[in-house]
């Protein structure tokens, strides 16, 4: 492969990883920003999406899993909301961190019990199973599909947030919860909707990631930290921040692994530390 071809492939890999992080972190950041809720179990919901899709697609094929897994994860999210999260809405951060950390333990063992302690795989759909040629390089079609899907969802979310009434309500809630409530916005209901949407997106990220990575009980742990880093770097509750953060982390990880494997992880954490200390509100704070 030519040298430029190599870099094009790496760029595509970077874009794909970034968009996966975006799907994961966008729900996390809005939940974080809108209700100051820290949900460490978000990574476990991503893993749940992957597991559900593995089981469902064995019966209904890939697209069955693709459609049902986000729904299933959202339903589990609703259950968690009614059972735990609603009570912790106004608790301090530490209790939220602890309860959702406990949920990670519970989910990880439930995956082990339900699906075993082995790596599972998911075949990409036949429609996207081959290779395509883009920009003069051969690249797996499925990964192009991931990129396209990520871009479509990013655009859709941007439209909803900036152009619709729901979006305005969400932005108002992030900006000033009390004021939004005074203006007659049912902030709790808005949050509930956003929470479900965030869970569904985490589930979707799980389905989409399943054919690319292997499905393991600990797969949620490995994406949780990058997703949290994206959220903090970008600024809590900010869509633009989630986009920029995802691309920063995704590209540092992809290119770092190629150029300087020793430094890649280091740079990500150093970036996180630098942002926290120099710009604690993140690069694109949602709150003015």
């Amino acid at each position: 492969m030519s040298d430029t071809g190599f870099w094009i492939v790496q760029t595509l890999n970077g874009v794909q990883l970034s968009l996966l992080y975006f799907l994961l972190s966008v729900g996390l950041t809005v939940i974080f920003g809108l209700m100051h809720f820290v949900n460490l179990a978000h990574g476990a919901l991503y893993a749940l999406g992957a597991y559900v899709s593995v089981t469902v697609s064995a019966v209904l094929g890939y697209w069955g899993g693709f459609l049902l897994a986000p729904v299933a994860v959202a339903v589990v999210g609703i259950g968690l909301y009614l059972l735990l999260i609603r009570r912790l809405r106004h608790a301090d951060h530490m209790n939220q961190v602890l309860v959702t950390f406990g949920l990670i333990f519970v989910f990880t063992d439930l995956f082990r019990i339900g699906w075993g302690d082995i790596d599972l795989g998911l075949e990409p759909p036949t429609l996207f199973s081959g290779q395509s040629t883009v920009f003069g390089v051969v690249y797996p079609t499925y990964r192009l599909f991931v990129i396209a899907l990520g871009l479509v969802i990013m655009a859709a979310l941007a439209l909803v947030l900036t152009r619709t009434q729901i979006g305005a309500m969400i932005r108002a809630g992030v900006d000033n919860e009390d004021m939004a409530a005074c203006l007659g916005i049912d902030v709790d209901r808005v949050f509930f909707g956003v929470f479900c949407m965030g869970c569904a997106l985490a589930g979707l990220a799980g389905v989409v990631a399943a054919p690319v990575f292997s499905v393991t009980p600990a797969m949620g742990d490995s994406v949780l930290i990058p997703a949290l880093i994206v959220v903090v770097i970008g600024g809590l509750g900010s869509l633009r921040g989630a986009v920029v953060g995802s691309f920063l982390v995704g590209f540092i990880q992809t290119f770092g692994a190629v150029i300087a494997p020793q430094l890649a992880a280091m740079i990500t954490y150093a970036l996180l530390a630098a942002v926290l200390i120099l710009r604690p509100a993140g690069l694109f704070p949602a709150r003015s």
């Binding site: 209790n95 950390f101 406990g102 949920l103 990670i104 333990f105 519970v106 439930l110 019990i113």
Partner: peptide
């Protein structure tokens, strides 16, 4: 699956 028990104990404690 002892993590399951620890997780539940943690949630209940909080």
């Amino acid at each position: 699956y002892w993590h399951l028990f620890i997780g539940i104990a943690l949630i209940l404690t909080v």
